[in-house]
Design a protein around this nucleic acid. Structure first.
Lengths: 234, 234
DNA sequence: TAAATTCATATTGTATACAAGATTTATTTT
DNA sequence: AAAATAAATCTTGTATACAATATGAATTTA
């Protein structure tokens, strides 16, 4: 059995996805072919195929004779994100509530358990990846080839946004996370009950919570300094 | 200047997209690497990169050690299509009405003129491609990275559905087409006026018309044979 | 010294050869 | 003759060598 090379290929593929979603590879980071070849013991041919695929899925961008970069994230994309996300995810959860198989519901519950345990741990990356997996499963449940491309693209940046706008030592943020976990539970319930309207509403709530998190990040909670004490001297 | 190979590469890429959308390459058709290499004077390395990219965009599917196939179309996907299309296209036209640049509006009008002329010609493929280009431009206007992946995927099958469910000698079909052209004009108007609500409504109307066309195909107009004349003998 | 040009180096793109896997044909066995 | 096995063939996947392009350093020119 000599599929060792193929294993290395999928390993590279998984690694890059993971590293990009967790911001280990930052938006705009340059991907060096020879370096990756050495690291994953692959020749450039299969490596370049992986890069093409990742480009198709929106993780990276390729430019003629200029190599590969991790897809950028700007404030413009943040706006675009919150325009598209509630609509797409609403449709995804609606369909998930209609189509989910019992096996898929079990898988979803399992991932949610893992997500919950990763809440207590400090590892933000593991949390983001579990959260990502949770939503990916709802996408599989929805099972609509036309919605999935955009949904997958959204999930990439959802993970990256989560990593960007999270302060672990902020208590508001922690509460926000446990609320997200509660919403996951409610989503599971709605899907299991086949209640598509509830599921669609939860999708919107879930993104609103996500937006709140960003607001918390941008607008920190008041430092409780009364008016009149502006000057640092005196 | 020795970018001849690169030209052949994009030529292959364009050809495959075109051939798939016009059903010259039918859903499920097998893509033979060596055959394509010969035809486009390319080695397998760049060819396979093109295939990976097309796979990412939803034109074809790749399976390990089994080569490439043109993406399938089933009745299931038809249902999925009409579930997703009005929503996505509604959002696309809404954003197009908000964001379109004057240059883009000019481009859209040009393509619409070409579409109109292709209505009188009998060439269904040219018509489908012009129609496709029209909608692609609206996608460029909307300019939202999260919506475009699904929108592009929809457009592929929109072209293929149009090619499948069209009977050129049916007068109802012809009327349907000229109505589609009128809707294009209305879409241009709404975008130019920045009227996002009108644009969003037109998106829905446009898909309803598309669905009507399929109904016409499946349920042919009555043959006007009176009751009692069923038997062919006598 | 600053700008422009040339040369050297590094990176990306393509072709070909070979390896691994799938498929078909031929042979053997029952 | 039908099923099962083995061999040959064809297709897909990977590695490497080379070509083309981009980048950066060194040199020249003003």
């Amino acid at each position: 059995m000599k599929d060792a090379a193929k294993q290395r290929k999928t390993k590279l593929y998984d690694h890059l996805k993971r590293a990009i979603m967790t911001l280990e590879l930052r938006p705009g980071a340059d991907l060096d072919e020879t370096q990756l070849c050495d690291a994953f013991e692959l020749s450039r041919t299969p490596l370049r195929e992986v890069l093409r695929q990742l480009s198709g899925e929106g993780y990276i961008e390729l430019r003629e004779n200029r190599g590969a970069w991790v897809s950028e994230m700007s404030y413009t994309t943040l706006r675009d994100f919150f325009l598209a996300a509630p609509m797409i995810y609403g449709a995804i959860l609606r369909l998930a509530a209609t189509n989910a198989t019992p096996a898929q519901v079990i898988a979803l519950k399992e991932v949610q358990e893992e997500f919950k345990t990763s809440l207590t741990n400090a590892d933000a990356a593991a949390r983001a990846l579990n959260n990502n997996r949770f939503h990916e499963i709802t996408g599989e449940m929805a099972n609509n080839v036309y919605l999935l491309p955009s949904f997958r693209r959204l999930l990439i940046d959802h993970a990256r946004i989560g990593m960007t706008f999270y302060r672990p030592n902020n208590t508001d943020m922690k509460e926000n996370l446990s609320e997200a976990s509660n919403q996951h539970d409610a989503i599971i319930e709605a899907i299991e009950a086949g209640d598509e309207n509830a599921a669609a509403q939860l999708a919107i709530d879930h993104w609103n919570l996500s937006r709140d998190q960003i607001e918390m990040f941008v607008t920190p909670s008041s430092l409780e300094i009364p008016l009149g004490s502006v000057s640092m001297k005196t």
